[in-house]
Amino acid sequence: MTNAFLRAVAHLFRIPVRVLIRSNPRMNSVWWNAQYRLGFWRYLDGMSDGEMPLSLIETWAPRPAILDLGCGTSVNLPLAPGRYRHYHGVDLSSRAIEAARALGRPDTSFEVADIRTFDTAERYDAILLREVIYYLTEDESAALLRRLPAMLTPRGRIVVQIYDVTRAEEFVRVIRTCGLSVTEEVPARLGDGPAVAFFVLTRPDDAERVDGRARDGSVGWDPAEPTGGPGRAADPAARVRPGPAAPTTAVP
């Protein structure tokens, strides 16, 4: 079976999963653990679309601290040493988190938690929601997105990945109307699959930041970050490109 077919089948689970979320969160955890135990999501481990969000993040935050909500096993996110400062993955499935920890990658941590209620005192340069929000209800997705800016550093951004934007139109609408600013929207395609989109979100008052500077001229840069430096201008002509081995391609 092709990856496109498996992804299509996976998206059929959206309706029952959303029903379980509303009725019984504990059962929802059991449901996801059973799927990972049976290998239902194993095909995702071989996908290389994880290069695209990392390339996006690097345009505003070299060596970022990353929070990945709904991370799954995180196998398909190419966390090469030196490319990030720290990575924290959160998922409802203890089976998925067990597999993620077994990778033994440096400067990583993992946590079993419900992303709808997850909170932390840590601050991150990037928060990833990779093919996650459509497993929640529309109201839950909007509420989650509105909570996330409190977990960002001054330069931080939220990256939301939507697979098959045509079939997830209601969640694209949630992204655009949740009250956050869409600073970038990058269309892409995974091989012969449907249209994918990556949305970069920030606080509404950050919408006019240019090259790390706010409207008042202050620098939106984390001084604890050794790479780069305060006010270092990003190349405005830089475009997001996948790595050599990644089948994900930006659509012109």
Rank of each mutant, 00 (worst) to 15 (best):
N3F: 07
N3T: 15
N3A: 12
V9E: 09
I15M: 03
R22K: 03
V30C: 07
V30D: 06
W31F: 15
R37I: 02
W41F: 15
S48I: 04
S48L: 15
G50F: 01
M52N: 05
P53R: 01
I57D: 04
W60V: 08
R63L: 13
A65T: 10
G70F: 05
L77Q: 10
L79V: 12
A80P: 01
S94H: 13
R95K: 05
R101G: 10
A102E: 12
S109P: 00
F110A: 06
E111I: 08
A113D: 15
R116W: 06
D139W: 08
S141D: 00
A143G: 01
A143L: 13
R146N: 11
A150H: 14
P154N: 05
R155N: 13
D164E: 11
D164V: 09
T166E: 14
F171P: 00
V172T: 06
V174E: 00
I175T: 10
R176G: 09
C178A: 09
E185T: 10
P187L: 03
A188T: 11
D192T: 13
G193V: 08
R203C: 04
D206M: 09
D211S: 14
A214N: 12
D216P: 07
G217N: 06
S218G: 07
W221D: 12
D222P: 00
P223D: 14
E225T: 13
T227S: 07
G228Y: 01
G231T: 04
A233W: 04
A234R: 14
A234K: 01
A234V: 06
A237M: 03
R239G: 11
V240P: 00
G243V: 05
P244R: 07
A245D: 12
